[in-house]
Design a protein around this nucleic acid. Structure first.
Lengths: 343, 343
DNA sequence: TGGGGAATTGTTAGCGCACACAATTTGGCC
DNA sequence: GGCCAAATTGTGTGCGCTAACAATTCCCCA
């Protein structure tokens, strides 16, 4: 009994005593179905445990309800949060999300991911790949694929959603300057990442705007605590450094550790500010003053933007006529890792 | 010119001067196609930029190449890593991965997610939902859905892949005992999580096995640093505590912080051991001795298990005839947050 | 040089659904 | 009571592909 294959629309129609087309109408909330008929159909659906076949539906309607998300490394806190936000929002709009993680971050790899997703027939794609290389590759994507880039800057021709990294970096730098620091050193993220570039630019801009000396940026960071630690060791043996703005929280953690191992006190001897506001930042020693960005919101906005591009006749969402460029402002979270420079 | 719709198999066939069926054979690597013919077909495919329609393919073949992953919170480090591992492995097997994040962790929510994924027509599902409630709900899933549970214990009837939490906890506890601590306190994770339960059991078992006193477990933890911090404050004002085994690294971080704020030294006054080995653990102050689990591998193994269950005629992978129960052993990573009890 | 079996190719049917249109019913109104 | 338009339902067709089977073609050996 269990062996007979899954019921199809025709089976439901037979039980309900209607045509398969009426069943289709009921299932798709089409108007002009008598309530009594609708009820009979629904009853038959329940009785049979009928589930529409998604493949047949897409084939016939030429529409998919699945979206693709390409991300470089979903293991990182930021991307993971965005993915989460995207999925949540997608669910609300009754879309599925299929993910494609990038192996490496070259153009090829990204284009491959786009191809894979297209093969699968997604209605649109969200790209979380804030590397310069990726952004460049995005230009090579055929324009018939609805695309939204997250955190890939807003200078591109594509639809985009991004946090204002420059503003965030300015926030952090100005805050330190306001505290009385002569200048602020900057632990840069990997330069292949747009975020790193923008944060560096924001830091430099803030310094220049205030007429503060622009110290040589501390390069070689790769977002990990390890590189933060390495730089921390170097900084500890460099006099005159009173304030460091780190391109992300993880590096700040490593920095904190190295500084303390070297016998320096934070914030008394050196002030440190991070970027991201990971859940743990508050519990670093000392708790980290940092720039908060709302990854979740970023993801949700990205999804909404994509939906607006692909349009949704059913939900009455028209296809947008202009490519959205959404910028989300970050905010400074003041905790205890920064203070006025010591006597 | 661009307006005419995407080429279909028939178009390729016409250009190559063969029947559509031959095109299908070439595309599916079927045998018995003359090399010359194959080349002509492939050339036509390239010329037209033809891409097979996935929906039509699944409809006709009654086979999908997409798998579903259900996870409670992909934002957490563990789940995020597993998801990553799963996607990587899936790609190698030419499968797509669509994710379904759970809103809440009750049975309903999980069953809903399963339904959504089934509606979409996935070939199988991997569940990352290590909560007791979820595991219970899994039993209600219709048995015709290939399912693999990750980190949901191995006591279930379902196929499962899990880290041996008990062994890990024993490792940590025994290590502390070996250092000379009279007993080891345990900061428990949320009891609704299997991992928390198993780690607690492992801790208790190790204590009993060695005849050490079993201290009252410290409950109320929710994996976050915040709860670790709260317990740390309490512990700081409790004499006699010399060693604490935390159910995860984040809570350990909070604990560390609270202890130090209270003027206690780690490890001199109190030894602390965590669980997970997040990338940052090494840079906590002090660097955290912890139990390492290979989430990535966990994900990969889960995927492989699922593939074996659904079988893959093309790749010559037969459907397995027994439900796999894979256990992955954790390992202790010794750093500096634990030492022998002070004088 | 012809016959037979294997290798290669083509033909015909659906897969389960949505869409366009045709057919039927219903209701309102004079 | 009859007529028309609107509301409701049904019919036929095709989405693009794979699976079975039928029809060729090829090659080798007697």
């Amino acid at each position: 009994m269990d062996g007979d294959r899954a019921p199809v629309m025709e089976d439901v129609a037979r039980i309900a005593g209607v045509s398969h087309q009426t069943v289709s109408r009921v299932l798709n909330d089409r108007p002009n179905v008598r309530p009594a008929t609708r009820d009979r159909v629904l009853a038959a659906v329940r009785e049979l445990g009928y589930r529409p076949n998604a493949a047949a539906r897409t084939l016939a309607s030429r529409r998919t309800r699945t979206l693709g998300v390409i991300s470089f490394n979903t293991t990182l806190y930021g991307p993971a949060c965005m993915l989460y936000g995207i999925e949540q929002a997608a669910r609300q709009h009754e879309y599925f999300v299929t993910v494609a993680a990038l192996g490496t971050l070259d153009r090829r790899s990204l284009l491959d991911a786009v191809d894979r997703l297209r093969d699968q027939g997604v209605a649109g794609i969200i790209v979380i790949a804030p590397q310069t290389a990726a952004v460049g590759a995005l230009a090579n994507v055929p324009p018939d694929v609805p695309l939204v880039a997250v955190g890939c800057g807003t200078h591109t021709a594509l639809a985009s959603v991004a946090v204002d990294n420059e503003a965030g970096a300015e926030l952090a730098t100005s805050y330190l300057l306001d505290l009385g620091h002569r200048t602020v050193h900057h632990l840069v993220g990997p330069r292949s990442w747009l975020d790193a570039q923008e944060r560096e630019a924001g830091w430099r801009g803030a310094l220049e705007k205030r007429g503060a000396a622009v110290a040589e940026p501390l390069v070689g960071g790769d977002w990990t605590a390890r590189t933060g630690y390495e730089h921390g060791q170097r900084i500890a043996s460099t006099p005159d450094v009173t304030a460091v703005f780190c391109a992300n929280d993880h590096m700040a953690l490593g920095l904190l550790r190295a500084l303390q191992q070297a016998g320096l006190r934070v914030p008394e001897d050196i002030s440190v500010v991070g970027f991201d506001d990971t859940p743990e930042a508050e519990y670093f020693g000392p708790s980290l003053t940092t720039v908060r960005q709302d990854f979740d919101e970023l993801g949700r906005r990205a999804l909404r933007a994509l939906i607006e591009i692909v349009g949704d006749p059913d939900a009455g969402i028209p296809a947008a006529d202009e490519t959205p460029h959404i910028v989300i402002p970050p905010s400074l979270v003041v905790r205890t890792s920064a203070t006025r420079p010591g006597h």
